[in-house]
Nucleic acid binder design. Structure first.
Lengths: 256, 256
DNA sequence: CGTCCGTTTGATCTGTGTCAATCGCTGTGG
DNA sequence: CCACAGCGATTGACACAGATCAAACGGACG
């Protein structure tokens, strides 16, 4: 096997101050569903606007500065979340330091689709984030009271399954540039659904995050970017702002 | 990129007789939930035993000989299924013939967790199979009538998400032998939950299926098997019947 | 007995990981 | 204001794990 740990976050010397450098999460009172940007995108939409006080009654808010950790792999799961602002990454670390970014979470995404009693991934803020928190128990009773909420959760779980299965194809059978193309197209699509202009992608995460998401190295990701640029499929000056010039070509090369 | 098509099923010359060689599915009347081996494992368990007639009323049965296709990628999704006997594979093909086996479905597994209106994978029988069929519409009304059914579906969707995310780590960051180890322990675990003796795995699928599931070639899968055998982690004479000699070692090498 | 197919094993080739150097931007201190 | 340190991104040279090519083996079936 290749792929050994390098620039990796060192194999977690499980000391006291686990929230490494960056800031720490801050709790706050819930600021109300009325003006929430995520509501139309999130499962909360399954609860009628006239009944949002049922949500607000049990919800809290979490402010998460970029780089901070929301939850650690292995921690007991007691709460579920909806992302209200910003982007997070779902990270898993192997003992030898190899890192996987299992996915990126964006506004409206629900965190809590798991049967496991403990987190299976560490959740880290890529940018400054705001999240809605619900105790799992409250979420369960809300589901009983509003069956539509449970349907909504099921629907969102299904679409997350679809997306995750899509990643399987990327990782198992596509080459580096194809993976990157697929990643960019999918991210652009998610951002477009959130109101961003089509044909552009924001990449707040680092190349290392992308590499660990696509099963590549930083260098290969970088080379793949230049390759896509040279082929005219994408364009960019800022490495975190990509223009998708030839979406059909990108889609085709990712097998879509 | 490497990984080009070779032994692959030829890029689907979308002719009329798409159900290639093997047999074709046969429909039958539902044979009753009472003696169903899958019931305790499947979501059907969410409906009380006294009410199974509600299921039987809308369910049908499908008999699927090994090699036959249940549904094709791209077909409209009109039904959902529960596997009652046998094993299926979930396959996706790229235009150039590269193949992905996104997963294997076993007794009790539910087929129908997707938000898409069309199948995103072809479903093929690895062994002779029997499935319970439900029109999607009937499933929806059953969910309304039995909220526990929807909870059960959500729970199963979550555990499928957990499993799929586990595959991400295998594919993105583990070497061939590690992937194989992870695959074997996970399969053993699923079979154990279904009553099989621990420490053994049945592999009805071919090496090609395993390779396309793990993002490898047949040859590398074979070599990884011999490596695991030489290291004493597994033992076998029949290539389709593996003894897991050192489960802790297997789990460790897969990062579990 | 011979063909077929899946599996295993061996030899070679190549893409991508590894090692290393440079570039560019940001923030800090003199 | 400029010099410098630090970090992320990019580019280049090289090595090796795993893909490719090739052949042999073994069981199933006619």
């Amino acid at each position: 096997m290749h792929i050994k740990a390098r620039t990796r976050t060192s194999p977690d010397t499980a000391g006291p101050a686990r929230h490494s450098a960056a800031g720490t999460p801050k709790r706050a009172a819930h600021s109300g569903c009325a003006g929430c940007l995520a509501r139309p995108l999130a499962v909360c939409a399954s609860i009628p606007a006239t009944e949002t006080q049922a949500l607000e009654a049990v919800a809290g808010e979490v402010l998460l500065p970029a780089g901070a950790t929301l939850a650690h792999e292995g921690d007991a799961r007691r709460e579920v979340y909806t992302v209200t602002r910003g982007m997070l990454r779902r990270v898993r670390l192997l003992p030898d330091g190899r890192r996987l970014v299992a996915g990126f979470l964006m506004v409206g995404d629900f965190i809590g689709f798991s049967g496991a009693p403990h987190y299976r991934h560490t959740l880290e803020a890529v940018t400054d984030c705001v999240l809605c928190v619900f105790p799992m128990q409250s979420m369960r009773s809300l589901c009983q009271r509003y069956p539509d909420l449970e349907s909504g959760l099921l629907a969102q779980a299904c679409s997350e399954l679809d997306a995750t299965r899509g990643s399987l194809m990327l990782l198992a059978r596509l080459g580096p540039s194809e993976r990157l193309a697929g990643f960019l197209v999918e991210l652009a699509e998610r951002q477009r659904r959130r109101g961003a202009p089509a044909g552009q992608v924001d990449l707040p995460m680092t190349r290392a995050d992308i590499a660990d998401h696509l099963g590549l190295t930083i260098e290969t990701v970088s080379r793949s970017f230049t390759k896509l640029r040279q082929s005219g499929a994408v364009a960019f000056t800022d490495p975190h702002r990509i223009d998708l010039v030839d979406v059909p070509a990108l889609r085709a090369s990712a097998g879509l």
